Measured scan of single mutants.
Amino acid sequence: TSIVNVSSSLNVRSSASTSSKVIGSLSGNTKVTIVGEEGAFYKIEYKGSHGYVAKEYI
């Protein structure tokens, strides 16, 4: 489990790309479970499925 480190919110994306669809967002200090990594993104558990967040904010 890791913590989201942002002051406002962090986009959760459908794939490991800044141009991919935003499927949701997480607020600062939210706990997330990392299940993998791809480039500059972590794959996380998100709403019963998976999403991707930028590593620099975790």
Rank of each mutant, 00 (worst) to 15 (best):
L26I: 14
A40C: 14
S2L: 14
K31D: 07
S2E: 07
S25V: 15
S25I: 15
V32M: 06
S25Y: 13
S25R: 14
I58Q: 03
V53L: 05
E45H: 07
E38T: 07
S27D: 14
E45Q: 09
Y46G: 00
K55F: 03
S2W: 15
I58W: 07
S15V: 05
G51V: 03
V32S: 01
T18A: 12
K55Y: 03
V22Y: 06
S17H: 10
N29Y: 13
G28I: 14
H50R: 04
F41S: 02
T1S: 11
T18S: 13
I23L: 08
T30K: 06
I23N: 01
V6M: 10
V35E: 04
K21A: 13
V6I: 14
Y52M: 00
A16Q: 02
R13M: 15
N5C: 15
A54M: 14
K31W: 13
S20M: 02
A54F: 11
S49G: 15
I34T: 02
K55P: 00
K43M: 09
K21L: 10
T1D: 12
I3A: 09
R13S: 06
S8H: 15
I34Y: 02
S8C: 15
L26D: 00
S27V: 12
S8Y: 12
G24M: 06
A54C: 15
A16K: 02
L10P: 07
N11R: 11
Y42A: 03
S27L: 12
S8N: 11
L26H: 02
G24P: 01
K55E: 01
V12R: 00
S25P: 04
I34P: 02
G48Y: 04
A40L: 11
K31Y: 12
I34D: 01
V35T: 06
E37K: 05
S14Y: 11
A54G: 10
E56H: 10
S8L: 11
G28F: 12
T33Q: 08
N5G: 10
V6L: 11
V4R: 05
A16Y: 03
H50A: 06
T18Q: 11
L10Q: 05
I58F: 13
N29D: 09
E37T: 07
V6G: 11
E37P: 02
S9C: 15
E37A: 07
S2A: 15
S19A: 12
Y52F: 10
S25C: 15
S20C: 05
N11C: 15
G28D: 09
K31G: 06
S49A: 11
E56Q: 11
S20N: 02
V12H: 02
F41G: 00
E38M: 07
K47F: 09
S27I: 10
G39K: 05
T30L: 06
G24I: 05
Y42L: 05
V35Y: 05
S8R: 10
N5K: 08
S8D: 12
E38Q: 07
K43F: 04
S25W: 13
S2N: 10
V32W: 04
Y46F: 14
L26V: 08
K43R: 09
V6R: 04
Y57A: 14
Y52S: 00
I34K: 02
N29G: 15
V35G: 01
I44W: 05
V53M: 03
S9E: 11
E37W: 07
G51R: 01
K43Y: 05
F41V: 01
F41C: 02
I34F: 03
V32T: 03
S14N: 10
V35R: 04
G36W: 03
S9W: 13
S15C: 13
S27H: 10
I44L: 02
K47M: 14
S9Y: 12
G51A: 08
I23D: 01
N29P: 10
S25E: 10
H50Q: 05
I58A: 04
V32H: 02
S14D: 14
K31S: 11
G28H: 13
V6C: 15
V35P: 00
L10C: 15
Y52D: 00
S14G: 09
Y42E: 00
H50D: 05
F41N: 01
K31V: 14
I3V: 12
I3E: 08
I58S: 04
Y52Q: 00
K21R: 12
A16H: 04
R13A: 05
E38K: 06
G39S: 04
S49L: 10
K21F: 08
S14K: 13
I58R: 03
V35C: 07
G28K: 14
K31L: 14
S7Y: 07
I34W: 03
V32Q: 01
T1G: 12
A54L: 15
G24F: 09
Y57K: 08
V6H: 10
V53H: 01
V6E: 08
I58D: 03
V35F: 05
A16R: 02
A54W: 10
Y52V: 00
T30G: 06
G24S: 02
S25N: 10
S17M: 07
S15I: 05
Y46W: 13
T1R: 04
T1Q: 12
L10Y: 08
T30W: 07
T18I: 13
G48V: 03
L10W: 08
V4E: 07
F41D: 02
L26F: 05
S17Q: 07
V22P: 05
K43L: 08
S49E: 09
S27P: 15
S7R: 06
K21E: 13
Y57Q: 11
E45S: 07
K31I: 14
E45L: 13
S9M: 12
S14T: 08
S49W: 06
H50M: 08
V12F: 02
S14C: 13
V35I: 14
S15F: 07
G24T: 03
E38F: 07
S20D: 03
S17G: 06
T18W: 15
R13V: 12
S17C: 08
G36M: 04
N29W: 13
G28T: 12
L26K: 01
I58T: 05
S14L: 11
V22S: 06
V6P: 09
S15W: 07
S2F: 14
S17K: 06
V4G: 14
L10K: 04
T33H: 09
S19G: 10
G51F: 03
V6T: 13
H50T: 09
V12P: 01
K21W: 08
I58C: 05
S17F: 05
F41Y: 08
G39I: 03
K21G: 07
G28Q: 13
I44A: 00
E56L: 08
I58M: 07
S49R: 10
E37C: 08
I58H: 03
G39E: 05
H50K: 04
G36N: 05
V4W: 05
V12Q: 00
E56V: 11
S8M: 12
N29K: 09
S20H: 04
L10R: 05
V6N: 09
G39T: 03
I58N: 04
G39L: 05
Y42W: 12
S15G: 12
I44G: 00
K21M: 11
Y52N: 01
V35M: 08
Y52C: 01
Y52G: 00
S25Q: 15
S49Y: 08
S27Y: 10
E45I: 13
S9G: 12
E37G: 04
Y57R: 07
E37N: 05
G51Y: 02
Y46K: 00
T30Q: 12
I34E: 00
T1N: 12
K55V: 04
V6S: 12
K21N: 11
S27M: 13
Y57T: 08
N5E: 09
I3P: 06
S19W: 07
K55D: 01
A16I: 04
V4S: 08
R13T: 12
S2Q: 11
V35W: 05
G51S: 02
G48R: 04
S19M: 09
K21V: 10
V35S: 04
T30M: 11
T33K: 11
S15D: 12
T1W: 07
Y46C: 04
G36S: 07
Y42K: 01
S17P: 00
S7P: 10
I44M: 01
I44H: 00
H50L: 09
Y46M: 03
V12S: 02
E38N: 06
I34A: 02
I44T: 00
I34R: 01
N5H: 12
K43T: 03
G48P: 03
K21T: 12
Y46L: 03
S15N: 09
K43D: 01
G48A: 06
E45T: 09
Y42R: 00
V12W: 01
E45W: 09
